[in-house]
Design a protein around this nucleic acid. Structure first.
Lengths: 352, 352
DNA sequence: CTTTAGCACTCGGGGATATTGAGTGCTAAA
DNA sequence: TTTAGCACTCAATATCCCCGAGTGCTAAAG
């Protein structure tokens, strides 16, 4: 049987107090709240019940109570009140987002920094491709007799390029031929489809430009690989140190390295749930991370790409506030990357 | 009057012992070294002298000695022995460098990570332009009727691009015209030279493509600005926490934030000295940073760009080793970016 | 004049011990 | 069902003391 309404109210009060103070919460503190006007003894009884239900924990016999992982779960699922962004906050959020984010991959790392600043916690940002990438079209631009520029447009509509210094002089005509052959044979094919036979055939058809084929193919293959592999940006680690739970250097370091290693490599895989997710440390990530939680939000970037921003903090963190900021941000971003409505003056700006 | 030879020898021993142990060095410890076979009393006398010279310090009356900032300075300038990289080390350094560093700006951040790993300290990497950038040439590629790709080659030989969705249909002919006009009027001109009059003249000459002019110009102007502004990558902050001097959380945090703020913003400006430089904390950076030093090395990337890699660590760090690794690395990089010898198969790989 | 042995003195670190006070659980009365 | 009251627990803090590493100085030896 679950907790009573009053018990939930108390639980909520405890979580919120704990979030504020980072100290175990006493019955007295709760009994003094205007909305819970009972004596400390009454609260104590209820707290004992909540402890039996596994929603609270006691660091030691004569200390106050602290929410357990289960307690947090209940809190974030049912009890948490939407945090209302103040107009000041929305203003600064908007301002932050309006910042010129010059290049597409820079955007994602900028976002990380912003989120970190706004929550005063470490944050990370991920961009990951959910579809197999391929090249949509190839173009060559002559750049003097000694070099040409290869420009490829990916299926994600990103454009990448490479300057190729020529080992020999190649005529415009040959270049056109090569372009045509490549467009005919490689367009739409993901890196996994680059079989030796295919390459062979292309080389045969490429005429005098045959010597360029391996260079181009290697470049494209590398590119597709590299893009596939998603990127994670992590910033603001130092902000974690101001949290009291990490005043223990060892914990702090363990935390930071886990951040660097685990989170970075595992979280992209976690991508899949939708909207804002809250991972409560020991429950959802790893038992060692007693005091760590992650709040993350995903959003669509369109063109087969997803983005994700997340905040890492003490299990005791202000979920409501963090969540609010995060989703507001994610909405803004989704709009910014807006899949459909592209006003002609605000075209995509891509960089390879 | 400077220290005697014997005093220097003692100073060197003290620095090196302190680097190893992170504990104040006692006269006894020194007197036991085979190369300084004096009684502890003798050493004590000399140590007292070195203290008078300001080269050593005493944390408190009955503790051993610790090198002062001045002491370190003398050490790194005169006393430090070249650290010989073992073959194992060179091997792993080479291996690390051979790693595919797919894109030009990625390279620089990868380097940071590598250096951090190899020194087990936080490291940063900077790429900065020393010359005013301009565009070398403009090209357009049609991509369907609704969009075109603008490709610009910068004076640094980097290539950037932008996908432009067209508000209207533009003929190939118009596009060629626009390209010609831009190449004629904007090539070689830095952003600062984009005067309203110039833009005006271009727009007049652009015929039917006039509506594209502002888009292109804005893009280019932004681009040149953004590139000018140098980028700093900092990684491995957590490694600092394993150093005993930062077991004090407050120090650690102060350090980390200073890292984030000061170093990041100020060091690029410091670019200018040549070769490997050692900045001893309180002396060269800021008085607050009692325990922090920076070792940094610059190298030429060619094409009006400079790179810099640096390591941040406790003032007590193994300067010899760090310096060795750093310069080895810098050499390798300079070679890699090698200005002149570009084997045709290993062309520049640029990304915009 | 330089080196060294000897000795008194200093002072931080660590361990043991006492003290405090916040908080609990339980009981009995309202 | 709520509350007042009280005994009890235990982490955190303060206090004290001792240990020993290390120094500075002096006086003797080289």
């Amino acid at each position: 049987m679950g907790p009573s309404e009053r018990q939930k109210k108390i639980l909520r009060a405890i979580v919120e107090d704990y979030v504020r103070t980072a100290e175990p919460v006493s019955s007295k503190a709760i009994s003094q709240l205007p909305e819970l006007n009972y004596s400390s003894a009454t609260i104590r009884n209820e707290m004992a019940a909540l402890t039996d239900l596994g929603l609270l924990e006691q660091p030691h016999t004569s200390a106050g109570r602290v929410p357990s992982a289960l307690g947090y779960r209940l809190y974030v699922n049912e009890l948490m009140q939407d945090y209302r962004l103040s107009t000041d906050e929305t203003k600064s959020l908007n301002q932050a987002m309006e910042m010129k984010m010059a290049q597409a991959d820079k955007v994602i790392s900028q976002i990380g920094k912003l989120v970190s600043q706004l929550t005063d916690l470490p944050a990370y940002a991920v961009r990951s491709h959910v579809q197999q990438l391929s090249v949509k079209r190839f173009d060559f631009i002559g750049a003097g007799t000694q070099s040409i520029i290869l420009v490829v447009m990916l299926s994600s509509d990103e454009i990448k390029n490479k300057l190729i210094r020529l080992p020999l002089v190649i005529t415009d005509h040959d270049l056109k031929l090569l372009g045509a052959v490549l467009n005919a044979s490689l367009a739409g094919i993901p890196a996994s489809g680059f079989t030796p036979e295919l390459i062979d055939r292309i080389t045969k058809n490429a005429g005098d430009a045959a010597s360029l084929v391996p260079i181009v193919v290697d470049f494209v293959a590398d590119l597709l690989q590299a893009q596939q592999h998603s990127e994670v940006f992590l910033t603001g680690q130092n902000r974690l140190l101001s949290q009291p739970e990490f005043h223990d250097i060892d914990k702090a370091q363990q935390m930071l390295t886990t951040l660097d290693e685990d989170i970075i490599s595992n979280l992209p895989a976690t991508i899949g749930g939708n909207g804002t997710q809250i991972l409560v440390g020991p429950e959802d990530i790893s038992k060692e991370l007693r005091d760590t939680s992650v709040v993350m939000t995903q959003f669509d970037i369109g063109e087969g790409m997803k983005g994700m921003i997340g905040v890492v903090g003490p299990t005791r963190m202000d979920y409501a506030k963090v969540t609010a900021r995060l989703s507001y941000f994610a909405e803004g971003l989704a709009k910014m990357f807006g899949t459909s409505e592209l006003p002609p003056s605000e075209t995509d700006k891509e960089d390879s």
